[in-house]
Design a protein around this nucleic acid. Sequence first.
DNA 1: GTGGTCTAGACCACT
DNA 2: GTGGTCTAGACCACA
Lengths: 124, 124, 124, 124
Amino acid sequence: MQINIDIEAATPLFTQLINQIKQAVVNGDIEPGAPLPSIRQLANDLEINNKTVAKAYQLLERDSVIQSKGYRGSFIHPDALTNSTIDLNQWVEKTLTKVITDFKQAGVTDSEIRIAFGHILKNK
Amino acid sequence: MQINIDIEAATPLFTQLINQIKQAVVNGDIEPGAPLPSIRQLANDLEINNKTVAKAYQLLERDSVIQSKGYRGSFIHPDALTNSTIDLNQWVEKTLTKVITDFKQAGVTDSEIRIAFGHILKNK
Amino acid sequence: MQINIDIEAATPLFTQLINQIKQAVVNGDIEPGAPLPSIRQLANDLEINNKTVAKAYQLLERDSVIQSKGYRGSFIHPDALTNSTIDLNQWVEKTLTKVITDFKQAGVTDSEIRIAFGHILKNK
Amino acid sequence: MQINIDIEAATPLFTQLINQIKQAVVNGDIEPGAPLPSIRQLANDLEINNKTVAKAYQLLERDSVIQSKGYRGSFIHPDALTNSTIDLNQWVEKTLTKVITDFKQAGVTDSEIRIAFGHILKNK
DNA sequence: GTGGTCTAGACCACT
DNA sequence: GTGGTCTAGACCACA
């Protein structure tokens, strides 16, 4: 599993972590039951703070994507696949719906949104 | 002019205000020279904080979309039409770029984003 | 609503907060829709750290017991009653089940547990 | 002697070990002077860490329940019976007191606790 | 003032 | 070494 953190990004670090771990699960890059790096080690590797990783792990555990076994480390939850797939797409739809609703409320037309969307996705 | 504020929206309240006022100008719902409601009045109507309206007005004035005439209240700027148009699309592009960047960073593919985008725009 | 924090207790501060707020909801001491004190103010009143209160609020929000409205403060969630009642009793049963299971595994008999339980509940 | 470790239990692993060994002594499942499995052996069998077993043995030796004879391994202490009995009930009372204190602090009433307690002890 | 995020230091019990 | 909890300081955008 390869994790890339962008410190400059708008997305909070812990959210980046969460999304990437979920994505890794969905992609099959990491299998249910597999051990995750310890909080401290991952924090070290990514050169971010322990607590930031801890927060991500804690939130992943509450969503049953990972499973903490106390001092013996954290593991991918048996049902991680189910609990990850839905979430990421839900997040995309939810976020996108939010901004589009905002646009339309401000009077932007569908076609204007489409054009802007086209621009952005093309140039990337 | 009809203003709708969505308190739950991701967009800050003052931005919503700004966008809607600009849009009203562009649409011709409100003409250059026309008076705007007072800060307190509008804040009252929308059930938001005075300072939030004040901030929106201040930024609109900075962009010469409205014009404050001291005690006599605020009015649509003579050149409001010119100064309102461009911004909105910039805002759309900027906002959309931000969320799409976040998506891709989380590992969502272009086609997944496209699909979600299609869903949302169709159902509205 | 009256909140008492015991800094010496084994239960983490944020858990004490959570439990007492849920309990206040269940008891009807605080109604759905009612505003909660701001994080900073409550922290001040209880003489604990901001972040500890923030953590409690965050967890309560995720359980839909309270509802954060951004900078405009937090409020009791409309469905708070549903989401609080079950939880507290579940917590009691779960915790109690855990320790009793531990006891029995260690070879303590039912009657021994009953006796100890009787002692403790009487002397309080 | 049969030892069962519950990795998910609230009770620390080393405490589970201690309790079960003491209990085995009290029940007469293992007699004073009898040899105990080596630390490594037991750790292996239970699939837990060497150091966890070592800690349990060390504490048992401190309480004169077992006796280390250097290279020749550990044995049940001659006075093990005397030194094992009392502790267990103390542990039960202490643990139970702790959780009940927590419950009441959270606003759970005596009768609620009694009811939950009744449920659990009946269904086992 | 208000919440959100990141960093950091310290303590504790458990492995 | 490992996770959990508490405290604290700093920064930011928002109200």
